[in-house]
Design a protein around this nucleic acid. Sequence first.
DNA 1: CATGAATGAGTCTTCATTCAT
DNA 2: CATGAATGAAGACTCATTCAT
Lengths: 219, 219, 219, 219
Amino acid sequence: MSTDSKPRKTGGKSQKKPAAGKPAVTPSPARRRELLATAAEVFAAHGYSATTVRRIADEAGLLAGSLYYHFDSKESMLDEILSTFLDELWAGYDAVLAAGLGPRETIEALVTESFREIDRHRAAVAIYQNESRQLAARPRFGYLADSQRKFEKAWLGTLERGVAEGVFRPELDVRLTYRFVRDTVWVAASWYRPGGHHGPEEIARQYLSMVLDGIAVRD
Amino acid sequence: MSTDSKPRKTGGKSQKKPAAGKPAVTPSPARRRELLATAAEVFAAHGYSATTVRRIADEAGLLAGSLYYHFDSKESMLDEILSTFLDELWAGYDAVLAAGLGPRETIEALVTESFREIDRHRAAVAIYQNESRQLAARPRFGYLADSQRKFEKAWLGTLERGVAEGVFRPELDVRLTYRFVRDTVWVAASWYRPGGHHGPEEIARQYLSMVLDGIAVRD
Amino acid sequence: MSTDSKPRKTGGKSQKKPAAGKPAVTPSPARRRELLATAAEVFAAHGYSATTVRRIADEAGLLAGSLYYHFDSKESMLDEILSTFLDELWAGYDAVLAAGLGPRETIEALVTESFREIDRHRAAVAIYQNESRQLAARPRFGYLADSQRKFEKAWLGTLERGVAEGVFRPELDVRLTYRFVRDTVWVAASWYRPGGHHGPEEIARQYLSMVLDGIAVRD
Amino acid sequence: MSTDSKPRKTGGKSQKKPAAGKPAVTPSPARRRELLATAAEVFAAHGYSATTVRRIADEAGLLAGSLYYHFDSKESMLDEILSTFLDELWAGYDAVLAAGLGPRETIEALVTESFREIDRHRAAVAIYQNESRQLAARPRFGYLADSQRKFEKAWLGTLERGVAEGVFRPELDVRLTYRFVRDTVWVAASWYRPGGHHGPEEIARQYLSMVLDGIAVRD
DNA sequence: CATGAATGAGTCTTCATTCAT
DNA sequence: CATGAATGAAGACTCATTCAT
């Protein structure tokens, strides 16, 4: 995978000093994942800064202070949620982009992949949607800005290629189109519920039909 | 309920001491508007709950405490920003809906009107976008839920009418389409900058072209 | 004055952004000084890290949170207490060192000046005594290390000059003597009470008599 | 009370379950001593209240919770460190005081003994120096106050005897002298490093020379 | 109208301590 | 004996809000 969003410490939290003896790194990625999932839901539902650590703890069934056994801070939870999500997202995207498809097929694949990610990381996507602009400015979350740049390059490039190859309408404002397409895909995280009427692939299909061919009946 | 998002006290807030025969102070509505505009920008930029009253005051050039001469609370600023915006929005929407246009023309008019609102109330739209879900649940902001319902009815109804009249494709999942259209329109507030390349009408046109006819070249 | 312990913001606390308007810097150095005096007493009595902000606030007659209107943090109070003290100390020391006295007279003047400082800044001296070693390592308190170096140079230099000029015993281990003298002077802050039996000058005289001529009767 | 700073449970701490006929666990006193030595270093370096149990554990190579197998509490570690030190100190002091020496020789012997203790219990002395004032007020550490009283009696008595016998200068303020002497001796713990340039006896000799005969050349 | 100062509730975080395994 | 995970109390700090001047 090319663009890891960031290098993360595998497992335990930061230990101040390995010092003299043995105190090994704390494993138990299972509990960690559980807690992160809970935190992600709460962040997604109420917004990061409106979410209290105590709320997360309540939801997870422990006391607020106990979260700090597993995480350094509220922010580090957010960080881990987002970076984990982006790592997986880019694994999928990079595979699509490396497949050598035509513009239309690439768009289709990217959209489908996006809805799949929404299906699996609904909360993380919602958080990303709501918080990334403010976060991207801070050094710790610099990888968000990186990701955004890569993202734009991938979509914009594909759209331009499509126009050049005559697959997409020539009068398209690609930049504008890119924004429309990007936003509509991701904003779906705010209403999508896994296990609902439509699976991600079905939603992708409907969405692609609209974007590619429009909703109007052809004259 | 007709159109007003909520009944608001016209003019200033309650005077502290109307008793002792003093001439009623006239809290300049101009200053009030200025301050609300500043607050809206900050809310939009950083999120409501991450915005401190002091930040707003700094930006406005006074001290935090002084804001309380003009407003009851941080929440009441938010309230006034959102309700003012919604009042104007519905004035426009209602005019469109009352015009008796066909489905396609109605959609076109609503979209155009929406981008005009974004042009004039960018900050308010951004705030609405980010905060309305959580706010709608609270009694004070019940008008947000009302508005949302009216909104859905207007769009969904138009889409359904369009399908029924054979103007829109019959296989359309209108509910899904509604969500896509709605989100894409409003999410534009997050990147739109008044006075930029494209005016609201131009953006609306591009957007409508995509939604109605798709981006793909017709075979 | 040559070695300012550190440049300090005169008056108000740090303001994040002067931003648009007028919000002037908060003056009122009086209240500030009061609060710092209280804080210094408590720090001196219980140690910095064992002192709670609430304790200081209780002693000062306000609520813990209110201290943050005047100071950025508990640490910044400590900082201001120490740097203010060191500024004054060095004003006195530098005057002595610039006076061109002989070694014995310089020692006498430094000791006397030191006890005067203890008389006026008892709490600050006690804090300095207890906390400076740990603090000096941290960047913010780098001036403590600077001061210590200057201090050593002044005393050690004078002692060496005295030995060279035949005023002090030739077999003296000056480094060891320096430490003894330095510690004994400053540790007096732990029992000294202003307004007690002996004024600072009297204590200095007794102390100098011991250090210079010993406590034993001459044979 | 004779010399024991406090009556301590000999051997380990109270067993959790002496009931069910299990062979009494033998908590190795060696490990205990190791851990106390580590704790003492950390307490001395950072101050008691600024030291976290976790820090001690890190330094000792185990986890924070594991320390509680060996000790009841952080405070009990401090207690044991200080009382062990004082027991040994008083063993030495009592021997000196019982030897029937003259005032000057007694002072010499006490000073020498003190520097020997610093040599062997540097960390404990440093802790004592920094924390005893606050601790002495608490019941559990009442022995610190006792010790201080005994200490004062021994030194003050010897100084007074010396003045009475014409060995020390008659104009001496013995109380002030006592404080100077006491402080200078013990504060040495803050810079003394075992195995350095001077052994404890050498330092004692230099120090006694200064205190008894002064640093100035006799005219 | 605005300021300066304060309140008080609440937030994140730390840390000594406990305990089942 | 030690670990991993938790508790719960307390600590530093923030912030919306109030109010006398």
